[in-house]
Design a protein around this nucleic acid. Sequence first.
DNA 1: GACCTGCTGCGGTATG
Length: 713
Amino acid sequence: MTAFDLLSEPIRKYIRDERWESLRKIQEASIPRILNTDNNYVIISKTASGKTEAAFLPILSKVNFKEKGVKVLYISPLIALINDQFLRVEKLCCYLDVKVTKWHGEASKAQKDHLIKNPEGIVLITPESLEAMFVNRPQNIQHLFSSLDYIVIDEIHSFLGSERGLHLKSLLSRLQQVNRSHFSVVGLSATVSDVNLYAELKDFLGNSENTKIIRDNTPKPINAIFKYYPGSVEELPLDLLKDLYTRTRDSKILVFPNARGRAEEVAVKLKKISERVGGHPNYFSHHSSVDKEVREYVEYFAKSAKMENFCISCTSTLELGIDIGNVDEVVQIDATHSIASLIQRVGRSGRREGKASNLYLYSTDRWSLLQSLACWLLYLEKYIEPIATTEKPYDVLLHQILSIVKGSSGLYLNELLDKIAHNSTFNNITELEIIEIIDHLQQIDFLEKLGNEYIIGVEGEKLVNHKDFYSMFHTPTFFKVSSQGVKVGELPLSPQIKENENIFLSAKIWKIKYVDYEMNKIEVIHAKDGKKPIFFSNAADTAHRIREKMLEIVFSTDNYEFLDKEGILVLNDMRTKFSAFSLKDFESDRPLLNSNDILELYSFSGSKINKSIGFLYDFLGLEYVYDDHRSSFKFKEKTAADLVYQIKAFRMTDYQINEVISSHLQLNPKLITISKWGTYLPVRFQIEILKNKEYDFEGCFKFLQNIKFIENN
DNA sequence: GACCTGCTGCGGTATG
């Protein structure tokens, strides 16, 4: 029997009506497996390769929707993706007479009410909406989701290694606890080439042994071109913009300039050039601070553009899932933060079967060029950076304790402990630690004991009843920007935000007319010239292997045919400069520049290891300036050379590290705000969170154990 | 200089 024959008749009719010539490879593989077993599966395949159908065709053939209750729960990281998938899944479900309901913050209340009256079919939801239901309407969790057969998690790789992922993992566990029988989980993921990630993916679904990987690893040809245009961080070089313009003139293009402000700069400046030379007007910006309706229009325009060309200058908002139709080329300006991100972005182009992906990469600085080369070469080696693991997610636990208590009407200690013990997310946290956190929550009035039962305390009520409770991540206060009643987007308060300043936003130029500090609103009118807006954000950490690869490139003699003349010149210049150091082993040897009045260590190591090295130098009382971009430590005094060397043998005990972090926390309690819920933990757990999120002492000591400082000749 | 993600319930008003 072929995979097609295994499907139920209504599904086969759907396929015939859609006039599919054949099933995709990934679908051929998934259909018999999902139909014949109750295993969990992770389906790995490129975007637009039919992953959604690979999961839904067999699931819809298999599940009995006549039974009461929601049978399939689809979980997505993005609202936009839910709206996109809704149309596809609903079309499919028409053939089965199965109801599909969207359930997220912007979904229709009436549809949700209807579902409560008739719990049935398929629900598409976000983790945060699910959390909200656990907290505010726990009876609805029972009512809707206690007879699930399948949970489908889309873009599952985007949850791995993050607090949001741990949160989702905990919610899955809690759903399993209310289900009468076992449900299966199917995760959908973009290409994960590194097999080391398989273990993480399997673990995420909570049942490694019964989780199998289905993967289509058909390689996709990618044409890459790297160009070098030196410029400043404030403004992009004019020559770069002119060259970029010629690429956008006759194509459908996505540009990823790495930052919202820069995305605006690219969109506005290219549009100006286009206006001057009579090119197309379709230059847009797309990022989280562009108004939602504007963004939806841009997505709609790109999706429906047939003959018309367009250029969208965007951030990671267009990196995931959402189908924006055919894109000819992807332009990346300066290095991506990770290899995974680079692959995901390149995959946005050449989505038609058999078409190649095209990547155009501009670097505006030599270190960025080097990092871009490293990411690209590692990608060709099929390497992806490892995922940040959290042994003991105390902050997620604290949040989930509050959620569980709020969702109950009073809970005995053993009931609470039992719920946590059955949640695999917290397997590595001991019962003593859990009790310590519960006691602490009681002390700070987040929990209260009524007789022998725990309820939410006075201070806890304030948090739990606020809309900020449902997510694991922070968001700053934004000012809503509008022009005569038309929403444009939003901006954080910065020195730039004052009357008569001109700024770029949503690919247009505006003059600020009025700032309303009470209502957090900004009124603007059109203007002719301005500056890119300032946003505040934290730098992403760069992986150790990327830095090591950068070192290897500097000391190699390889030529890269995809690099332009200027790029070759600047790379050769770096190679010449570093040839003063005779390095042999790239794992251990590191250049230490020792000239007339400079002492500079090029550590070529990951951001977290660098921060740990800095922590040790601080402890030794050595003054330095650290530059993460170059991965370098510039020491103030030449006499410090001894101390620089001393770090090789220098070790701090765990106790000493904890003492130092503890005193840092006392001086500056804001340090812990990198974790939204960690803020409320006892100090000793805050220290553990910081050690995990900011530093990598284990990796650092391992690195220092073998390090050899190689001075210049 | 440096990404992104989501959001209840209530009471008010407008609309069919």
